[in-house]
Simulated assay, not measured.
Amino acid sequence: MKHGLRQIRAFVEIAAQKNFSKAAEKLCISASTLTLQIQQLEAELGVTLFERDKHQVSITFEGQQLLIPLKSILDEYDYAMHLSRNMADNVLGVITVAVLPTIASTLLPNWIKIFKTTYPKVKIVVYDLNANEIQEAVKTGVVNIGIGTAEQSDAAIDNIRLFEDDLELFVSKENELASFEKIYMRDVLHYPQILTLPGSSVVQIFMKNIEQLGYNIQNIDITCQVRYLSTALGLVNVNTGVAILPKSTPVSNFFPNVVRRKIIDFKPSRTIFVLQPKNCSNATLSEAFKNIVLENI
């Protein structure tokens, strides 16, 4: 059928109201639009549905014969819509998500909020993990979906690129580096370094780029290695050292002394991906969550 539900709904409403103006008001459309919809339906069906004069509207014999089957189409459609909404509202299940800590505290809450509007009864379990742990969790099926880097390609995992997350210098206002107009890596390495633990994407990128710049990692003063970026920010805040961290790292009011600076000769970034096992279980919910992530970045 070329013309659809709007034309059928217009026909059924006029038959019920026996008045074009009242039907148009009920459908929240103009009388001219309603007339056009009826003309379109009549042209497709090849019959006249209504006899109309200045005083009244009456349904034709052909229109009366078609009223019940056309109304049943609307009823079936309305029932299907009600059923689909009810199904979505009552879907039960669990999604497990492994995500980098920076993403967990910034982008993830909004993704979950959007997902919950459609699947309010689905439980979401979040694991804050480093890059290597996320890949392993996705590969072994511990989680349904991962948000992280893909340090090593794996045939068992599908990767979909999300965005580039640049690395920047985080330094205390009390540190003289904060007042430098231009900062080079040689300036940064003059101060104690606060790094994330081995296995994190940040420390891997740091080590790789330091070597490419010709520096010996053995000669670098690593004062602390931490798991969470919030811990690194706390140490930077009291000027224990400096840290090279992702641009996405949130700096809250708990760290009033922390400022960000770009390093002129150090411009690496990490690519953030959605990671899924190729043969994932709970595929419907996982796909729904993945699509929300991809559409809201």
Rank of each mutant, 00 (worst) to 15 (best):
L107C: 04
T284A: 10
I220E: 00
Q135K: 11
A283R: 14
K290S: 04
S269T: 06
I160D: 05
S179I: 11
F20Y: 15
Q135D: 10
R261F: 01
F50G: 04
L34G: 01
K262G: 11
T117R: 08
K113I: 06
T240D: 07
K247S: 14
M87S: 07
Q276N: 07
V91H: 06
G141E: 10
A98T: 13
T60I: 03
K116V: 06
E62R: 05
K262S: 13
I103Y: 04
L36G: 01
A43T: 11
Q225N: 08
T223R: 09
I194D: 01
L285A: 06
F273W: 12
E181T: 15
S269C: 11
I103C: 08
T140P: 00
I73L: 13
Q193L: 13
I114S: 04
M87P: 00
T271E: 10
I59H: 08
I147A: 06
K113C: 08
K208E: 15
L294S: 08
R6M: 08
E164K: 15
L294E: 07
L100S: 09
E25F: 08
Y79T: 07
R161T: 11
V171T: 10
G199C: 08
I222D: 04
K22S: 15
G199M: 11
L162D: 09
A16G: 03
V202R: 00
A131Q: 11
G4A: 14
N279S: 11
T149K: 05
T33F: 09
P101H: 02
Y127E: 14
Q40H: 14
S269I: 00
R85Y: 10
I222C: 05
K2T: 09
V258P: 01
D165C: 03
Q135W: 01
Q204A: 12
N237L: 12
F11K: 01
A80G: 01
V97F: 07
P192Y: 08
T35E: 02
N237K: 10
F11P: 00
Y191D: 00
K173G: 10
L27T: 06
E13N: 05
N253G: 05
P192G: 04
L213M: 09
I59W: 04
T48V: 12
A243C: 08
I264S: 14
